[in-house]
Design a protein around this nucleic acid. Structure first.
Lengths: 171, 171
DNA sequence: AATGAAATCGACCAGCA
DNA sequence: TGCTGGTCGATTTCATT
């Protein structure tokens, strides 16, 4: 199935303010949100519904500290594969299914896949690499330890410049 | 500032079931959660509070579709820096502050930093690379386009194997 | 971990700009 | 189409067992 085309919603500055607020913390009640944003409860409620209906907000979810689960190791692995037609898709799925993998990207160029994994110990890392190389079509892997996670990917609006935000509003 | 040591919480299978549920979707009310988990409303409420107090759940936040904001480009950039004492820390902070960057990792080995960015067009990518190379101490950058994002990093418990989960429970 | 009462919240509506 | 202010039922919260 092809990715569904985005039904283009047009957002205004108020929508962006709401998004910035709830991507940071969605535990506040309507009254607090309304006060912070200078709107009425109903307006916030109305716009939040719209943003969810339009799939601008895709979900509301709890963020869990990986360290609380003993996931002390963070590893980035570059995976290169043999270049035959149709291979990549199946390999990508298999990488996605491996225990411990957190993010999987299919990339242009000579690398093919970048996989980011969270693990508890070196044994799990060994197992993971073994599983990767045993996937049919995988050529080579190169792993790098992450010493420090300086910025996590859990914000979207907050990372955008004024120019980028302006592009959203006026088209 | 050093990272705060985790005050070790011990979690049981019920806690893990709750975490798996709310990291996927936190919009359900207590009654639904209780029914799905086979617990009473109060028990779920009690445990959720405990998990938040213990910072196992760090936040509850809305997930926003980057495509809804025109962020069609996803790029992975490897940044290498000159190796002088104390340089890396400041550079990491500056990378973190750049518009468009979504994730920043400080890594072992010859690469030094891996940066993942979301952008709207090539001009923004050019600007970003320019800003990176103009950071004092940055040596070289190499960027790769992501053609397909197969797995996003927004789940933690769901990515863990039975073995990994067992490690959490019995220590 | 369950109960029940009190406090709070979110959904909805009629009316309005 | 987007908003207001108010109402009501649903929900959370909390003290108690």
């Amino acid at each position: 199935m092809e990715h569904a085309e985005r039904t283009d919603v047009d957002l205004d500055e108020t929508d962006l303010a709401i998004l910035e607020r709830v991507e940071r913390d969605d535990e506040a009640n309507l009254e607090e949100l309304a006060a912070e944003l200078g709107l009425s409860k109903s307006a916030v409620h109305y716009r939040l519904n719209k943003l969810k209906d339009a799939d601008v907000i895709t979900s509301v979810s709890a963020d869990i500290d990986p360290l609380a689960l003993g996931l002390n190791m963070l590893v980035i692995t570059e995976v290169s594969v043999v270049h035959e037609r149709g291979y990549a898709e199946g390999i990508g799925q298999q990488l996605t299914d491996l225990d411990g993998t957190s993010q999987v990207y299919y990339t242009m160029g000579d690398i093919d896949f970048v996989v980011i994994s969270r693990l508890q110990d070196r044994e799990q890392l060994n197992d993971l690499i073994d599983e990767m190389v045993s996937i049919d079509g995988v050529n080579e892997t190169a792993s790098t330890f992450v010493m420090n996670e300086l910025k996590t990917g859990d914000r979207t609006v907050a990372n955008m410049s004024e120019t980028m935000l302006a592009n959203v509003v006026d088209d």
